[in-house]
């Protein structure tokens, strides 16, 4: 009886593992080492994390031009960069949306947005969507906080109130960076938020 039970448990575990492996949308979890990339910035130059020699970490934000949640957070992302880039934690924004599915998120419109808003951080175009897929990003905005070794230390929302910045009580990303800077464990490692689903290219998804 015990043997049967053990076999059953093993089978269940294997099923769970194979399900995880087959699910391409899983991406990184906290503790994984994130891959670097080389993506085109709005100024036409390629940007890689490794280029940022003085960085002690990276605030990687999957975001875009059109999504109201992303727009609601835009000023807060700019503030994050202004506050933390001088401390060694720059924002690296990545637009993963397919321009044929959402024309507002084209590279040309990214450039326009940067000019209009005076965006001070790198705003990169993940044209093949490979980076978003590898990271496991599903929505905009979607933050991955990496330490200097590119180990993922936090995944999720910027704070706990997308509609109203002044009403936000918990600033998840700031708290996580402050913990990293103090050499402490990040208390809240993962959060979820409503966001616009990433506009995957039609050729690759249904």
């Amino acid at each position: 009886m015990k043997k049967i039970l053990a076999l059953f448990t093993l089978a269940a575990a294997l099923t769970a593992i194979s399900f995880t492996l087959e699910n391409p949308g899983v991406g990184y979890v906290v503790g994984d080492t994130a891959r670097d990339f080389s993506l085109q910035n709005v100024d036409g130059k390629k940007v890689a994390l490794a280029d940022m020699k003085d960085a002690k970490g990276y605030i990687v934000v999957f975001t875009c031009n059109h999504c109201p949640y992303a727009i609601a957070y835009e000023d807060r992302i700019i503030e994050l960069h202004k506050k933390y880039a001088p401390l060694g934690y720059p924002v690296v924004a990545i637009n993963p949306n397919d321009k044929d599915v959402q024309p507002a998120d084209s590279f040309e419109n990214m450039k326009k947005r940067v000019k209009e808003k005076n965006i001070p951080y790198a705003y990169l175009y993940d044209q093949t969507q490979e980076i978003a897929k590898t990271y496991g990003a599903t929505r905009t905005p979607h933050v991955y906080l990496l330490d200097k070794d590119r180990v993922v230390r936090y995944i999720g929302a910027i704070d706990d109130n997308s509609e109203d910045a002044s009403a936000a009580k918990e600033k998840y990303v700031e708290n996580a960076i402050d913990a990293l800077r103090a050499g402490q464990e990040v208390a809240v490692k993962q959060t979820k938020a409503i966001g616009c689903g990433i506009k995957w290219s039609r050729a690759k998804s249904e």
């Binding site: 599903t138 929505r139 999720g156 929302a157 706990d160 109130n161 997308s162 509609e163 109203d164 009403a167 918990e170 959060t191 979820k192 938020a193 409503i194 966001g195 616009c196 689903g197 990433i198």
Partner: peptide, 20 residues
């Protein structure tokens, strides 16, 4: 609800928060 982190998992732990 102002903080989706408090209720997204109630709908489904599988849900990342992307809509639809």
């Amino acid at each position: 609800e102002s903080n989706p982190n408090n209720w997204i998992d109630l709908v489904s732990p599988e849900w990342s928060g992307a809509i639809p």
